[in-house]
Design a binder for these strands. Structure first.
Lengths: 145, 145
DNA sequence: GTTGGTGCAAAATGTTTGCACGGGG
DNA sequence: CCCCGTGCAAACATTTTGCACCAAC
């Protein structure tokens, strides 16, 4: 392979799809394209984006395709607060998140930046912490003053 | 005062309630009693428990009283996963939580047990992390093997 | 031509709101 | 006797499910 990437290559997901007996549909491609272009998006956001290209697409289809793409390891969802899930590309690696409880600002970081914290948690509790699905909540530097 | 407690004393919330123009009702007391007895409970759980004593109580009333008791600093809610919020007493101090993504087990810990992790996060990002509202997710020792 | 995918409607789930009545202070 | 709290119904927001039809392969 030319890329040293651990996650599926940009079009490899289509092969995985097929090997599992799934089909390649326009909606499926549009949902992935929407997530790619939007960066972080709710199912509602994705649906709106998809409809710019294909009018009749139903939100149900968006939910079903986001779920499938997540199973394939192409996208993942995060819970930033009380609202809807937010989907994003995995692409060149996972991200973990810091969310400020006061100003709501979200900061995406690379997992290795949290290794010290993860180690402290592992040492104390034997837990291997992951902040990809539920982010770290707290007060950011600006709000903590 | 006889207790050195930072949070309101066991019956002090009633005074705070009154000072804010609220009233002491049977439902209000029963909701708090239910949370106390259940330890960790969803609004649905609390409602069922309350109905063991007073049949006609509506879940709306439970939601409204949980919200009020939270404003008063008597209870708080946590999000353990995709389901409903879970309420608990604050009583003798806050708790923070570790939730295993694999087996679903929840471990409650005292905030100071996470001080090393909190310090690592503060050093790296200037964030003051709180795991009271959204817990730490990951793999517990048993599931990480 | 199979059988998986889609659209639509409806249900399920968790929570909030509007409103008239009743009870706490 | 005022007005906060309650019960009830309905709305709301997010996600899931059932089913007939359509389209990918």
């Amino acid at each position: 392979v030319s890329t040293g990437d651990a996650s599926p290559a940009p079009s490899d997901w289509q092969a995985t799809l097929r090997s599992r007996g799934h089909r390649l549909t326009a909606q499926r491609q549009l949902v992935l394209q929407a997530v790619t272009e939007l960066g972080h998006a709710t199912p509602e956001d994705v649906c709106s984006k998809v409809r710019e290209t294909a009018q009749g697409v139903n939100i149900t289809t968006v939910y079903r395709n986001l779920e499938l793409l997540e199973e394939l390891g192409v996208v993942r969802h995060v819970h930033f607060g009380h609202g809807p899930s937010v989907y994003g590309l995995i692409g060149d690696g996972e991200r973990e998140y810091l969310v400020c409880e006061s100003c709501g600002k979200v900061r995406a970081i690379r997992p290795e930046q949290l290794d010290a914290a993860r180690e402290a948690i592992r040492d104390a509790f034997g837990y291997e912490a992951r902040f990809t699905h539920f982010p770290i909540h707290g007060l950011c530097a600006d709000c903590a003053e």
